[in-house]
Design a binder for these strands. Sequence first.
DNA 1: TATATTAAGTTTCTAGTTGCAACCTAAAAC
DNA 2: GTTTTAGGTTGCAACTAGAAACTTAATATA
Lengths: 163, 163
Amino acid sequence: MGLREPLEDVATCGLPVALEAIGERWSFLILRGALNGLRHFEEFQSTLGIARNILANRLGRLVEHGILARTPMPDDRRKIEYRLTQKGSELCPAMIAMRTWGEKWGNGVPSTPVLVDARDEQPIAGVAVLAHDGRALQLEDLCWKHAHDIRPLEMPVQDVRAA
Amino acid sequence: MGLREPLEDVATCGLPVALEAIGERWSFLILRGALNGLRHFEEFQSTLGIARNILANRLGRLVEHGILARTPMPDDRRKIEYRLTQKGSELCPAMIAMRTWGEKWGNGVPSTPVLVDARDEQPIAGVAVLAHDGRALQLEDLCWKHAHDIRPLEMPVQDVRAA
DNA sequence: TATATTAAGTTTCTAGTTGCAACCTAAAAC
DNA sequence: GTTTTAGGTTGCAACTAGAAACTTAATATA
């Protein structure tokens, strides 16, 4: 692959940060597996069909980035449990967004298993970009602005001087 | 890389479909560039600092996948315009989700430019998973179910027999 | 018309990465 | 104590990424 530069400096942006951690196909699939309940090396290996050395490498990388936590099981210390951290779990919306897109634009793949709302067990509608007040925004409603061009919302009367 | 299998069959899921198209760091960054208004080869090249052959390869791949449209400009036919298609634009939520995650969990990167709501020019809140009725769901509210275990919502009276 | 310049790719070549298969190591089971 | 199991390493061939130089076609300039 040639040398891999940190890539962070490609304009200030959170995206390169995320890519550094999971910007690679197996990382995504391992993450998807973890969100689906996979916990152990052999589970990932047999479910995903990934080569063992690559799996070891990616699991290690995800652990390094604090996305997975690595714990030997107390009852059988050969067994290692890889579990999503809070940081890792919060990649869920990104994963779902990609999955939903792939489902819509791919060749009619009806993804399984289905992600449902625990309350009524109905499939989710998808992912949306939310405005500061919670409204779901359409793509046409979005635009880019430089940070210094943004004027803070006028608050009722309070002087909020904290960041 | 050895041989690259289609990867589609890693359980039925839209995610591999998406990864096939953009599951690679430069593709994401090119896409981000496009969402930010980049249109031409040299713009991408100088902004992202990507090697020219890789850029050509990725642009071609994105065009093949119908994510970018490739059009020579009428006034200067050397110039090629790469523009997001509808399919490509709809990757925006996925990109934003990753960016937002990177912003939160990275080393305090304040991403620039900022994505704002066009109506009030306020920065967006983030990305959320929506339930079928439009409520924003928390991660704890989500769970996986097999398709055949899902019972359709009882509709008023209509007998909906279509898939 | 002849000569630069520019936009968008190719080509070449090196070095690092991936993938597969086989091997290793420590803990548990028999 | 031998076997099995979980989670890795190692070695090697094939492939890919990246930098820089080269190509090609369309415009601009002299």
